[in-house]
């Protein structure tokens, strides 16, 4: 098993206190914490532990790969919502709101195996983990759960966080660099094959190669990015109307589109 501890760490900077990679939720979640070198790392460790515990807790509640997780049991009708962990009800409520906001293009209830809030849960869990770092004596932090990113603060004095967006046609390259305000989620089929279902047609289908949504709520951004990947560029209008959310897509023909407020820093020249 490869030691992932050092993978995914940003270039050394004076202000990077801590980098951690955790195998959880079927992926690797990285956590980076920033603060001046004077901060004692031992003061930060308990907050990191809490954040990691919350990720594992979310995994144990929602994982559909675990046959005995409460979400799996709920789907099979073995328990009802009243007997399930409270967070499941909260998540499903949030998914209802996301379904409405996305005009039905994000619909966990339309999926073949039964209700599947996975497209919301990953972002939701990552942001909850981030919130547990807020109490630490640090200036900034980033949690990256398989490409869904939540952040607070800043990496160094006078700087904002900057993130790259992967080029779906060449995933070892970037298509854009953006200033991160809060959270960003990206959806597309290029990593795991066709797994996004169009709730209106019932077919696996994406109309753009990659869709990214930035906003203050990562669960919702995750859901909206999923919806945008499926619906295509017509949904950019809808997301633009949502205050505090911006979006960016890469089409199958390599064109890029974005809402006017999407904070692009640079674009890669595509072939």
């Amino acid at each position: 098993m490869v030691n992932v501890d050092t993978l995914g760490a940003p270039l050394e900077s004076n202000d990077l206190i801590l980098h951690h990679a955790e195998d959880v939720m079927g992926t690797v979640v990285t956590i980076d914490v920033y603060g001046p070198p004077t901060v004692n790392r031992e003061l930060v460790d308990p907050y990191l532990s809490s954040a990691l515990a919350s990720l594992h807790h979310a995994d144990s509640v929602f994982s559909l790969w675990q046959a005995d997780s409460p979400m799996s049991k709920l789907r099979r009708g073995e328990i009802d919502l009243a007997k399930a962990p409270v967070v499941i009800g909260e998540v499903l409520e949030a998914c209802q709101a996301a379904r409405e906001l996305s005009q039905g293009w994000f619909d966990p209830w339309a999926l073949p195996g039964g209700t599947d809030p996975t497209g919301y849960v990953k972002g939701w869990a990552a942001q909850r983990a981030l919130h547990l770092l807020l109490g630490a004596p640090v200036q900034g932090a980033i949690v990256n759960a398989a490409g869904d990113i939540a952040s607070f603060g800043y990496p160094s004095e006078g700087e904002k966080f900057k993130v790259g967006i992967t080029n779906p046609h060449s995933p070892k390259e970037l298509t854009a660099i953006v200033a991160l305000d809060g959270c960003i989620a990206t959806s597309g089929s290029y990593e795991r094959g066709q797994h996004l279902m169009d709730p209106h047609s019932g077919h696996f289908c994406t109309r753009v190669a990659s869709a990214s949504v930035m906003g203050p709520d990562l669960g919702l951004a995750d859901a909206l990015a999923t919806a945008l990947a499926i619906a295509g560029n017509d949904l950019l209008d809808v997301i633009d109307e949502l205050s505090e959310f911006e979006a960016f897509t890469v089409s199958f023909d390599q064109e890029r589109h974005w809402t006017p407020g999407f904070p692009l820093i640079s674009l890669a020249a595509h072939e």
Binding site: G8, D32, G164, T166, T186
Partner: peptide
């Protein structure tokens, strides 16, 4: 060259095995 200044990468969801191949995994 610009990538040296970014703190993270957003892309479509990958599995644990996929992370090692991903840009986020190669950030350093």
């Amino acid at each position: 060259a610009q990538s040296g200044n970014i703190q993270s990468v957003s892309g479509a969801s990958y599995t644990s095995a996929g992370f090692i191949q991903s840009l986020q995994g190669a950030l350093t």
